[in-house]
């Protein structure tokens, strides 16, 4: 990828990000009490976050799914038994448990990432693959 192409993409990402932040101030201020806006504002963030958690837990090992997309339970079994899949699940549970316990975002993220990095770097041999 050329630097120019990367620069264009960065500017696009910057504009798109700013667009989502400025929209309520430009267009939604007169409709801020509209029930649809309130409804979306109430539930969408929780749904988007859940999708992001689920996608990022599966997406990092998605090649696993290419083994047998027709047979998803088998694919999940493979994912869970692979070093990455199990490490991610364990680290994610640690993050959630730590956050429910101490509710300190920095602590939860740092410890969880540390566990995962140790897991993949110490090189637990993959059961599958």
């Amino acid at each position: 990828m050329t630097t120019t192409h990367a620069l264009i993409l960065i500017i696009v990402a910057a504009l798109a990000t700013f667009a989502t932040r400025v929209t309520p101030f430009l267009f939604l201020s007169r409709h801020s009490a509209h029930p649809l806006i309130l409804h979306m504002g109430r539930y969408l963030p929780a749904i988007v976050m859940t999708v992001l958690v689920a996608v990022s837990l599966s997406a990092m090992t998605l090649p696993v799914f290419e083994v047998s997309t027709d047979d998803l339970p088998t694919a999940w079994q493979h994912w869970l038994m692979s070093a990455k899949g199990a490490g991610m699940l364990i680290s994610a549970i640690c993050v959630a448990g730590l956050h429910l316990w101490r509710r300190n975002a920095l602590l939860s993220i740092a410890v969880g990432t540390g566990i995962y990095m140790a897991w993949v770097q110490i090189g637990t041999p993959a059961v599958v693959g």
């Binding site: 992001l52 958690v53 991610m88 994610a92 993220i109 990432t113």
Partner: peptide, 23 residues
């Protein structure tokens, strides 16, 4: 830095739990 990309997943988990507290 192998595995550091998990920081993003951890951030999503934390933000999700914060959503749970709010909702």
């Amino acid at each position: 830095s192998n595995g550091i990309e998990f920081a993003l997943t951890a951030l999503f988990v934390v933000l999700g739990i914060e959503q749970w507290y709010a909702l």
